[in-house]
Design a protein around this nucleic acid. Structure first.
Lengths: 213, 213
DNA sequence: CCCCTAACCTACCTTCGGTAACCTACCTGA
DNA sequence: TCAGGTAGGTTACCGAAGGTAGGTTAGGGG
């Protein structure tokens, strides 16, 4: 029926040889897509190689292992996330606004790359793995940003305490976004709710108040 | 801890035949141990079978798949967690005390079963899996407990909002406990910090206050 | 004491992560 | 311009581990 129906598995384009770094970028891109479609565990290295128009050993030459590839995908997404949140925070008028803008940027990032990012969050957890380390690095980057903002706002801030606080924010945000089943609330609702719950707590930490039983 | 019959590993000489449910319990116990030692991914069904003094097909007869076995382990641990937190909350004098006691019970549970529970949290995430569903069920149970307490405390409580709040608490607690690298703070420090940050937020939700930009 | 079923095992398949060894397009220098 | 080294790529394989078909035996009920 249709004329040029042949978009075969290997595209009719000549299989060009790519420079190393360009190939690497392409592979990370393809891997991200395939991971988000089938899940990390279900995606085979052969699948990814085929989709990229090369063969398995090329993947192993670049990333060493499936875990290494996953780590690269996580890091790349993490850099985008960090860029988005940093940009948002930069344009803020004060600590409260910074927290709100940062949260909104985070939720917007998830909204755009939901399938991809969620599959990474869910399946990059294997304890000793490079992927888990990468994911932890991303999370800690976000946390450190929050903790830094707090320190800047509160001069004599207890840094360990600020870090704990930041981890609470990170964990809470991630949970709100990860939780399946229920329909995902909008970016605005999520941001608003986090601010409702968290800003008061920040106030407590700020003023050195402590809960006492 | 569990009924005395099962000392996780079975001496290879006496390989008794066990009634179905008893064997099932033993297998879950053994699997939990092996998962916590090597990690879920690294633990093979053959390993677990050997440790239990039986062979692979028995495992598959009982649980259908590795995922099924993992789900069973998660559910069993989740029941213990639910029992611990429910008991703690039951003996509370009011909502504030209930939250504090519940959090403490959670952190104590993790402290006792750290290796086991963390490996489950980290590796039971594969999206379509029974294990992920089981884990989500456990988390939602905890969240629902918190939301219910809030509703009981605040008569005209906005239930969806209470649920969001509960998810924040669950996510934050999990993050504080999961975060590797740094030395794990004590149960008291964790509980205190969560109350510092969270109780004020609860106050805001309680009184219907909302953050406004 | 037999015998039937539930409990268990042997032996196998398939998939997939990972690797050794080889091939070839492309750039570089003489 | 053409050898030839190298970066980029392929073929063909291995072994480990999830999963299963079909046979074997223990041991409690009749």
């Amino acid at each position: 029926m249709t004329a040029g129906v042949t978009s075969a598995t290997v595209p009719p384009t000549i299989r060009r040889r790519l420079p190393r770094d360009e190939r690497a970028r392409q592979l990370v891109e393809v891997a991200d897509t395939v991971f988000s479609e089938h899940g990390v565990a279900a995606a085979s290295m052969e699948d990814i190689a085929e989709r990229a128009g090369i063969t398995k050993p090329v993947l192993y030459d670049h990333f060493g292992s499936k875990d290494g590839l996953l780590a690269a995908v996580v890091l790349r997404a993490g850099e985008e996330l960090a860029a988005a949140t940093l940009a948002a925070v930069d344009s803020a008028s004060g600590p409260e606004d910074a927290l709100a803008r940062g949260l909104r940027a985070y939720f917007r990032f998830i909204e755009r790359r939901r399938a991809s990012w969620l599959s990474l969050l869910a399946e990059a957890g294997v304890p000793g793995s490079a992927a888990a380390a990468a994911l932890e690095q991303v999370r800690d980057g976000q946390a450190e940003l929050i903790a830094t903002l707090m320190s800047a706002d509160v001069p004599d801030c207890d840094l360990p305490r600020a870090r704990l606080y930041a981890q609470v924010v990170v964990g809470a945000s991630e949970r709100l976004v990860t939780r399946p089943g229920t329909e995902q609330p909008s970016v605005d609702v999520l941001t608003r709710h986090m601010m409702d719950v968290i800003w008061a707590g920040f106030g407590a930490v700020r003023t050195g108040q402590r809960w006492s039983e």
